[in-house]
Design a protein around this nucleic acid. Structure first.
Lengths: 132, 132
DNA sequence: TGAGATATGAGAATGATTATTTTATAGTAC
DNA sequence: GTACTATAAAATAATCATTCTCATATCTCA
């Protein structure tokens, strides 16, 4: 396992603190409140490294930025199509999907993910500006 | 509906020609064989425009690049985790997923997408180099 | 035909991410 | 505890995908 430096520990703590799934730069802003001299590159490098080591999850969701998740158990997500925010959806994971997909493809299937899109509570309250 | 310029028509034709779902720059390379002076910006601009008009689908899948699909009916995809290639998966769309998700979120749900990950036939044949 | 609207091509600008280089810090052997 | 080595961090440059800007070209239709 990798060494738990101060920077890594604080990145991990800040990620675990929130239920939404922040981007690297959102996390950078959060971590900087506690470690003002940390570099954005350090945040990227360590998120990548921790994802490789199974300590966190790198979400391959739609949108322009990657997002990270301190919960590594398999679960589904919903993404706000206005602001890009991502939350968990608490419905059972359907393992049988992989089996039925396997019958209709020559790929060697590794996993699956369900992503819902919608409008988050915050954006519903706002007067519907042009899409962000 | 939007005007069907030469550029738009050829982009559409080239997109319809392939079953995988190309990125903007892959499409640019394909289109350039027929229209050597077309600009990459034109490809991006028109893909975006045609997606807005429901003529094609912009796939919000994982990976670093957006991908496009000439088939606008709802269906699921599989992405190769080595080369990024995306293909269709021919299993029935589960509309009830949206209903069960609606019970566990405050989002206003607009839709859903299932994305499988795996190794495509081509990459299975290759001697497993470092991830691409 | 010609005015106004719309689209294109070329290239600059932006935003996210990754790579590189230098400096600092931690771990280890003596 | 000091010197040596490995690893990580900070700063910054480079890259990649995408969007924007603007001058020119092409349509549309009165």
């Amino acid at each position: 396992m990798i060494r738990l430096t101060t920077q890594r520990q604080i990145i991990l703590e800040e990620l675990a603190k929130v239920k939404t799934h922040p981007t690297a730069s959102e996390l950078y802003d959060m971590v900087r409140k506690r470690l003002p001299r940390i570099g954005l590159g350090t945040v990227y490098r360590n998120l990548e490294l921790m994802a490789e080591n199974g300590m966190i999850l790198k979400l391959e969701v739609g949108g322009t930025q990657k997002r990270f998740d301190a919960t590594t158990e398999d679960h589904y997500h919903i993404r706000c199509s206005r602001c890009g925010r991502v939350d968990d959806i608490d419905i059972p994971v359907i393992d049988s999907l992989v089996e039925s997909a396997a019958k209709s493809t020559d790929y060697q299937i590794l996993g699956h993910h369900v992503e819902f899109t919608g409008i988050c509570p915050d954006c519903q309250k706002k007067p519907k500006p042009g899409l962000q």
